[in-house]
Design a protein around this nucleic acid. Structure first.
Lengths: 341, 341
DNA sequence: GTAAATTGTGGAAGCGCTTCCAAGATCCTC
DNA sequence: GAGGATCTTGGAAGCGCTTCCACAATTTAC
């Protein structure tokens, strides 16, 4: 049988209220009683029942994270940040991984709405309609790697990041710079293109239309290895008219592009320099220069913001923008210290 | 205010018991009442409170997964499998990622013992002492990628897998085959070495002592990129006396080894063939031939087994061994259809 | 010394559900 | 048509906790 507050109360010869107060660090318990209760509790190996507690307090002490599974590395890093923040607060993490955005609504129904969690973290996805509109949910929620004016959100500055990546290539002396992009219907892809164009214009560099190639694939908005390889091949057939450097809208695509290059016998930094975006784990193995997204930090901040929202449901939506950081490896051709990474 | 069973009962002009029965698919509710209740519930947007339900039923409808964060890809794949199985049963997943095994005990205390979950899935870690001994926990538990005689467990046949990998190299004509191993204190590393030796002996091939090099690192038991690179360098200084092929105890190490090879200007399949183990995401990018662990399947089966255990706490411990599967890419030098993977 | 504030404590009520028991309706069976 | 079996149903009790109110025991102020 489970040890309850009543067992403790009886053995310690106090009332149940006192036991409860001890376990909630309520100030008005004398030192002696507190000690007695604590000892009895330890002896009986008592642990408060989280569900009973949740029911009585009307909160669950857990939050729900809805994350797309396909963002593998992002996923894990961000989760580490989330959990670090959560652990400090004695909150638990309920995870709902979705394979495609269609599943989101089901998840929202099954969990948040049903009072499973005190707050929801939404990752890399469009805000589901359940949360919009007048009679929408009022669960605390923070969007990560996504944005909507009605909600707290955390995201990376794609425009500035892409501009920085491009700037780096320019600084290395490249003039014929192209961009290998994902599907431009996706906002991040669009923003990264904007950043690229911005940097090019600011440096008075021409951007030939054929130097910008975007995927039209709808699987994962074209953020795949396959589109990277395909588009790279298109660049390669241009021969000497091809750009000497490319900004690639994601590391995953850059990986595909690198494969296409290797297959064609084109040397990577020498004949074609590459800069990616995201700094997924793979990037370090491929020695890919890229823009690092501070994923751990974003996860951690997301939790902070969620608690802020839970404490003050009516605050104005807060936005936090992270600046991606240039990680120089060898794929851009920049000289760098010979050490592994 | 939250909509409760009482609101529904009142509006539908039935008793609360009936409402509850409707939501639990209890057979003894007439079709008409059922319909009426369902309609009212939908109209009021009622959802049963999971914690109240959990308290009354004495179960949580959620399970806890304790997974080491550092197994990135494994982590995500296995989680997908877990979730797929869980979703079918209307169970939720509480995640506890640990950065190092020391944290495990804390997690166990905070969660399982406190009745947070109906069962626990333990991944890739030594069984914590809280679960052993006479007055141990009696929470349902399944070990994945780990083993202990007292518990249900799921793991991969490291010996057979390693033997298959080695066999593959032998079949490709290699005779001077070595092994690049992780720290042999780790059981998986040990088992993979055993498999390697077994295959060699069965084929009457000599294994020179200097052809087996194991890491002594304690960080992650030597399953790191760094040890892969270091040990590969040791092989390279052997010059023409070096093996022509290596079985590497993990893909992560193989990635490091590949880097060392590239740095030394040694061509991978041609001068040194490699077969790894795990088939992490990276492997496909690196075109690494490797032994695939069926991670999704293991996650999914883990849930099945956990439910089995929950239903029958006294069944004898069940063990399921998965056979890793050879995934042929280019690092082993085997001819293969020219298609990307 | 008394009145008033302070401190510590017990336990009833209530969180939203499930489940069991009692009982009213309806249906058979002979 | 009576007695029994079968369906449905209502609602009290109970899951393990928090919290509020009442009150006793001190302490403080005058």
């Amino acid at each position: 049988m489970r040890v309850t507050i009543y067992d403790i109360a009886k053995k310690a010869k106090v009332g149940i209220g006192t036991v409860s107060r001890v376990f909630n660090d309520h100030p008005s318990v004398s030192e002696t009683t507190r000690k007695r209760v604590t000892q009895v509790a330890k002896r009986l190996n008592y642990h408060p029942h989280p569900y009973a507690r949740g029911l009585a307090r009307n909160r669950t002490n857990s939050i729900l994270a809805v994350i797309p599974f396909f963002t593998t590395f992002f996923f894990v890093e961000v989760l580490r940040g989330v959990q670090a923040s959560l652990g400090e607060r004695d909150y638990d993490l309920v995870l709902y991984g979705v394979n495609d955005p269609e599943q989101v609504s089901a998840s929202v129904k099954r969990n948040a709405l049903r009072g499973r969690a005190d707050g929801v973290l939404f990752f890399s996805m469009k805000t589901p309609k359940e949360f919009l509109g007048p009679n929408a949910q009022r669960t605390a929620m923070v969007l990560v790697d996504a944005h909507h004016k009605n909600f707290d959100s955390i995201y990376v500055d794609n425009v500035a990041g892409a501009a920085a990546a491009t700037q780096h290539l320019i600084k290395l002396g490249h003039r014929k710079i192209g961009m290998l992009s994902a599907n431009l219907e996706s906002p991040p892809a669009r923003q990264r293109l904007d950043g690229f164009l911005k940097a090019m214009h600011e440096n008075d560099l021409e951007v030939k239309p054929e130097y910008v190639r975007a995927s039209t694939s709808s699987t994962l908005d074209g953020f795949t290895k396959e589109t990277g390889a395909e588009l790279m091949k298109e660049f390669l057939v241009m021969g000497s008219a091809a750009p000497t450097a490319l900004f690639v809208s994601s590391d995953v695509q850059a990986a595909g592009a690198l494969q296409a290059l290797a297959q064609a016998g084109v040397s990577c930094p020498k004949d074609m320099a590459l800069v990616g975006f995201d700094d997924i784990e793979l990037a370090s193995y491929l020695q890919l220069t890229t823009m690092r997204q501070p994923m751990y930090e974003m996860g951690s901040l997301a939790v902070e913001m969620l608690f802020g929202r839970m404490n003050d449901p009516n605050a104005v939506p807060r936005e936090e923008r992270f600046m991606p950081e240039l990680v120089i490896r060898t794929s851009c051709g920049a000289a760098r210290p010979a050490q592994s990474d």
